[in-house]
Simulated scan of single mutants.
Amino acid sequence: MESDAAVLAWLHDSDPALRWKVERDLLDAPAARWEETRARVAREGFGAQLLARQDPDGQWAGGAHFPADFRGDEPQPWTATSWSLMSLREWGVDATALRPDTAGLLERNARWEYEDLPFWDGEVDACINAFTLANGAWLGAEVTGIRDWFVTHRLPDGGWNCEWVEGSTRSSFHSTLNSVIGILDDERRTGGAPALHDARRAAEEYLLERRLLYRLSTGEEHPWADHLGYPFRWRYSALRALDHFRAASRHDGTAPDPRLADAIERVRATRDPDGTWHQAYPPQGREWFPVDVPAGEPSRWLTFFALRVLRWWDEA
């Protein structure tokens, strides 16, 4: 691609799930235009395909976090309820496009694979609870218990770790990023809770102290820092973390933190000569259908997220 204009045109020539974001965040289109495109997500392309997979009981693939036929002899599948809700929410689908009273259907029919716990109560995994908090806020479910869980289960160093139940006392980049993303989504949709807001800001400080890239104890680079792959799902990367800090900055009305500079330059340096970012580590495992390209090819999704983050930083 020969110019930024060509890259933007390429990004815009995409599924409505991405196109409306390009229109809003990169092309500065009028609200009426990108809102019309966003409304199309439920009627065509990725959104319509995934909505059509919802079961009459409100679930996808018959399970909460794993499909009903999962036997543990394959990589994590991405077809079950938690992941499907996450995709639809992130693509901008309106909650009314799902089956009527999906929140109630899941309350009655969905149970976590861990100890058969009720769906909207969450479970012991911070990442799963973060996804469920955000999904519940989107669907209007009662998730007060999950809000309280995050406040009481934050670790002494500031963040969270999905392995706390096995004795871990140190926060994880992955778990902490997933948690602050879910908490922020809840805040934006419902107003959140003061104690949870404070927990989010403290956990963000955990990541900022490490400049999104480094272990505080040794200064070594986190092995997942350059893990450019879409869909993000649960995985940490500097790009995904920067996208969260952009959203948090806009929500909180704060300027970009200077400690993000190293991560910003890392993202800038990974841009390919044609102006795009390529898919490096697509997640393995069953999915309903592919939403991005194979490894090695230019990724519209990664290019969009990178350009949006860099624009926010450069224009601050």
Rank of each mutant, 00 (worst) to 15 (best):
H174S: 05
L242I: 06
S171N: 10
G140V: 00
A126S: 06
Y214F: 15
F119T: 01
G158V: 10
D186A: 10
N129H: 12
R211P: 00
R233I: 08
L177P: 07
L117D: 12
D198G: 13
D186H: 14
L117Q: 14
D226W: 13
A199G: 11
L242G: 04
G122M: 10
H197V: 09
R215Q: 13
E123W: 09
W138V: 04
A238Q: 09
R154G: 08
E205G: 02
V124R: 14
D186E: 11
S171Y: 06
L228M: 11
G122C: 08
L228D: 02
S175A: 10
D121M: 12
F150P: 05
L106D: 03
L133R: 04
N161F: 11
R233Y: 04
A126E: 02
A130W: 00
L196W: 14
G182Y: 01
E220Y: 03
S179L: 05
L239K: 10
F131V: 10
H227G: 13
E113Q: 14
R111Q: 06
T190S: 03
G192A: 05
A225V: 07
A134Q: 07
G182K: 02
T144W: 12
W234I: 09
A141E: 01
S217D: 15
D226A: 12
D116M: 13
T144P: 05
V165H: 14
S175T: 02
L155S: 02
S175P: 05
P156I: 03
Y114L: 10
Y230G: 03
G219T: 07
V180H: 02
T190C: 03
V143L: 02
G159A: 15
A225F: 13
P223T: 01
L139D: 08
Y114H: 13
L184R: 15
L212E: 04
W149I: 04
Y214E: 05
R235Y: 12
N161K: 09
H222S: 00
Y236P: 02
A193T: 08
Y236N: 03
T190Y: 07
L228N: 05
V151E: 14
W149S: 08
E115Y: 04
W164Q: 11
D121C: 10
Y230T: 12
D198L: 09
G219D: 05
L139G: 02
W120E: 01
G140R: 03
F173M: 00
G191S: 12
P223H: 07
D186R: 01
F232R: 13
A202C: 10
S168P: 07
R170M: 11
A141Y: 08
Y206D: 10
L196P: 04
I181T: 09
L242D: 00
F173W: 10
W138M: 00
R233A: 11
A225I: 06
W234M: 06
T218R: 00
W160T: 07
F119A: 06
L208A: 04
L133M: 07
G136E: 02
R201T: 15
D116K: 14
L117Y: 06
R111T: 07
G145A: 09
V180T: 09
Y236D: 03
G167D: 14
A238S: 09
W120H: 01
L177D: 07
L216S: 14
D198T: 12
E187L: 15
H174W: 12
I146Q: 04
G136V: 12
V165W: 15
S168Q: 14
S171R: 04
E187Q: 15
A225C: 08
R211C: 05
G145I: 03
W164T: 12
G182M: 02
E123Y: 05
R201M: 13
A141D: 11
